[in-house]
Design a protein around this nucleic acid. Structure first.
Lengths: 339, 339
DNA sequence: TTGTAGGCGTTATCAT
DNA sequence: ATGATAACGCCTACAA
């Protein structure tokens, strides 16, 4: 059991005081070149490491970032986390992860816990059921920088990184049109969330830009699940209108639709073309690979972290910074042009 | 910008000293019932929260757990993390996540960083390329409890939770035999890792237990990837021996094999039955759903955390505790009995 | 039962 | 350029 070495150990060894050691270690200019070097050398020799708790107590900086996601085990979020860590770790920050399970109540609890743990900053993607924002204004009032990613609320003095979901909807819809679809349905998840609402806007705009008649009856709401996909597939098939293309705001719903249609012998992409959203790992592994929209979660995590670091490192005014990630269409068999 | 309230604020308000407040807050018995109640009440009123850094500095306990995984965005590991958090958070512990990217070098760096961050305990699943254990004995020497999960090394004074991989291999193999396979191949990833080695042992033992001839030529080594699966499929098909069942230590390799075989018109499960390992999310979404072995990562995370907590809460002797998670066979179409 | 005082390891503000 | 000292917030002997 080795004991932790402190600046006093270094000081004693060099017959100087802890203050001098501290100065040497912190690039303070009030120190001679040679003592500084000497300190750094012995620090290395003794394997000195700054005590994080003492530093935090003294400075008020914990070098900890609270990262709140609905679920950590979702492909999207776990990759955001990867990106954030990649950016934060080299700067000496570490990430504490919290899961809301898409519950507003849990999210409020978490914010309290996060504040209690005295993080230097917060990154959050709000839960599906979050309705108010008072728990987050509390964060702002404590002067803790807050960056939303993907799912955001409009709050003063916060920053955000989101996918350009409108553009995502546009890419998907235009692709279907370009590949010959003339009657396109849109299957959308919870339109209260900014992400889904925007994907729908992108869809609608693109339909209109192409001088196609926008028909609200062709917009369906469905959960992001296989079961919801099965259901909505049945609904779509039971309609008089003959649909030849579907843009889905979720890969899971899209797969559900594909499954049900194939079960019924409807050929994809010949009879109907389908595009999902998120580029979930499974979409490329299917026998009928699914066209989808890449959200670059890893990059999103990096950008969110960068924005947070800006705020953290400069004690300037809390300027808001709202970044967008550009979506990429990933074309696969499910929407292939057929003649 | 609200200021943080300390025990001094509470003390001042009640005309007592900080020491008394501290005692009240920490269930110390040297305090009268009524002052205690009074303190707790005003603490609540003032929204007091203990300063984590001060507590850590004073007590030497950071209430932080270092959790090291090869990749956070793998289904298996992200679910382990979920389970661990579920267990640790209610006890006031938080998790700091570190990724080794399956690199031994990075893992060594991480351990240094983890120690620097003064965690109270460590949970780790070692990288594929970890060859020595000196970086981890350093942890033991600092008296920091260490629990391995899934991928372990044999080190004194450490605990572990692993899947019973031998049993996993056994379940899969016995299932193939029960469903009529008589010539079974085993495709195994890096046999240096305990997990893969044990799955192979389970395979071998089961073959022998069933009085089938164990043929080492039917054991293949292949990465956990689609490409490796394609390759090994070709190898298997080019053999004189007619194989009618394959146990694969990875779902990805298994899928690769399936893809290649289907491409060549070989019918699964009629001609050949295939079983994978891990119950990756995609395995249930395929058109040909894959039989596989569930590893219950969430439960593994919980158990690992529980074992760590035992060590943390009791300052007893460092007793080793090695737990096993029982695997579950998930039967699907790829290995269905055909007549 | 409560108060006093010291120290955990750092850094910043004095003074030298 | 360096040393002495105080303070960050908390806990705990020890004293009362």
């Amino acid at each position: 059991m080795e004991k932790k070495v402190t600046i006093y150990d270094i000081a004693k060894k060099l017959n100087i005081t802890a203050a001098t050691v501290s100065r040497a270690l912190n690039d303070n200019k009030l120190i001679s070149a040679k003592t500084k070097e000497l300190v750094l050398k012995t620090a290395r020799e003794l394997n000195y490491e700054r005590n994080a708790s003492a530093f935090a107590l003294r400075s008020g900086k914990t070098k900890l970032i609270g990262l709140v996601v609905p679920y950590i085990n979702r492909h999207f979020f776990s990759n955001v986390i990867m990106g954030a860590e990649e950016e934060l770790n080299p700067k000496g920050y570490h990430v504490m992860i919290f899961q809301s399970n898409d519950s507003f109540e849990k999210e409020k609890d978490i914010i309290n816990r996060v504040l209690k743990n005295q993080v230097d900053g917060i990154m959050i993607s709000i839960s599906k059921t979050t309705t108010s924002s008072t728990h987050l204004t509390k964060v702002i009032n404590q002067n803790i920088p807050l960056v939303f990613f993907d799912r955001k609320l409009e709050i003063k003095n916060t920053s955000s990184v989101v996918l350009d979901d409108i553009e995502g909807g546009r890419l998907a819809t235009q692709h279907l049109i370009d590949n010959g679809c003339s009657t396109i349905a849109c299957v959308i998840s919870n339109p209260k969330l900014n992400i889904y609402r925007d994907r729908l806007i992108g869809f609608t705009q693109t339909i209109e830009e192409n001088n196609m008649k926008y028909n609200p009856d062709l917009v369906f709401e469905a959960d992001s699940s296989l079961a919801a996909g099965h259901e909505v597939a049945d609904t779509i098939l039971s309609m008089d209108t003959k649909i030849d293309g579907i843009f889905c705001s979720s890969d899971y719903t899209a797969l559900g639709i594909c499954q049900r249609m194939q079960e019924l012998g409807i050929r994809i992409p010949e009879k109907i073309k389908i595009v999902g959203f998120s580029n979930e790992p499974f979409t490329s592994l299917l026998e009928l690979p699914l066209t989808t929209v890449e959200q670059s979660p890893y990059e999103m995590g990096k950008v969110a972290a960068k924005i947070l670091l800006e705020r953290l490192e400069s004690d300037d005014i809390l300027l808001d910074h709202n970044a967008k990630i550009y979506p990429k269409l990933v074309t696969r068999l499910s929407s292939k042009k057929t003649t």
